[in-house]
């Protein structure tokens, strides 16, 4: 990579307030954050720190916030559900703690889902791309299995294959190793490092210091703010 990498995420003065049980909760109190292409960033914080809220905003899952958000150089202006859905579909791959695979679909169908919803390619082409991503994750022998028939590690690898199927600009992982034993967790982190080495932009939310150390950069969130001196 030569020259200064383009910023993928530019957040400035992001605030999020909601009411819970008649009490006003300031979940985020002015977050400024820039993430450049190819970076592997860990967002760390205790539960309730606001790190998940931040992830939802970065992942365009939550459009109710104040402040400015530029994704891939352009401001996120159109916050209509369908516009956000399209952006999530094309530009962001999600990896969740509890995998969030659809239990009634096979691994292949699960992995093909974002491509199918994108609607750019025929169903056969979508499955072909999904098969290729699953092959890279070592799941070629498991294409027709349902998630229930796989180990947790295999499930998370299937979920990563699904996240990559539309070749997104950004991979968002929310506690990707939270439900895994340490050996499997290491496997998953190795895969993420491999993706990072291949040039992917990754953001990983975790509460686990050891996991965060894998990333090249760690941002600490405390009480809805990036804690000073550690960014």
């Amino acid at each position: 990579m030569t020259g200064a990498p383009e910023p993928v995420i530019e957040l400035s003065a992001i605030r999020k307030t909601y009411t819970k049980d008649a009490a006003i909760v300031h979940a985020l109190r002015g977050i400024d954050l820039t993430i450049k292409a190819g970076e592997f960033t860990a967002i760390m914080g205790r539960s309730g720190s606001g790190k998940s809220t931040l992830l939802h905003i970065i992942g365009l899952l939550d459009a109710e916030y104040q402040g400015s958000y530029r994704f891939n150089g352009t401001p996120v202006e159109d916050r209509s559900p369908d516009a956000l859905a399209q952006r999530r579909n094309r530009d962001i791959g999600f990896v969740f703690q509890s995998f969030h695979l659809l239990p009634q679909l096979t691994i292949l169908e699960n992995a093909a889902l974002p491509a199918l919803y994108a609607g750019d390619r025929s169903a056969d082409e979508c499955r072909e791309v999904a098969r290729e991503r699953l092959r890279e994750m070592g799941l070629l022998a498991r294409l027709d299995h349902k998630p229930m028939e796989l180990s947790n590690g295999q499930r998370q690898r299937a979920a990563i294959a699904r996240a990559l199927v539309n070749a997104p600009r950004l991979l968002l992982a929310d506690e990707p190793t939270g439900a895994l034993d340490s050996k499997t967790a290491d496997e998953i982190l190795e895969i993420m490092l491999e993706l990072h080495r291949g040039g992917a932009t990754l953001i990983m939310v975790t509460h686990d210091r050891e996991v965060a150390e894998v990333a090249e950069r760690t941002i600490h969130i405390l009480d809805g703010q990036t804690s000073n001196g550690m960014v």
Partner: peptide
């Protein structure tokens, strides 16, 4: 949960 996953993966409301 099924609906949430589909929406997150970019199935539009439509």
């Amino acid at each position: 949960s099924d609906i949430g996953i589909r929406l997150a993966l970019g199935a539009g409301q439509r």
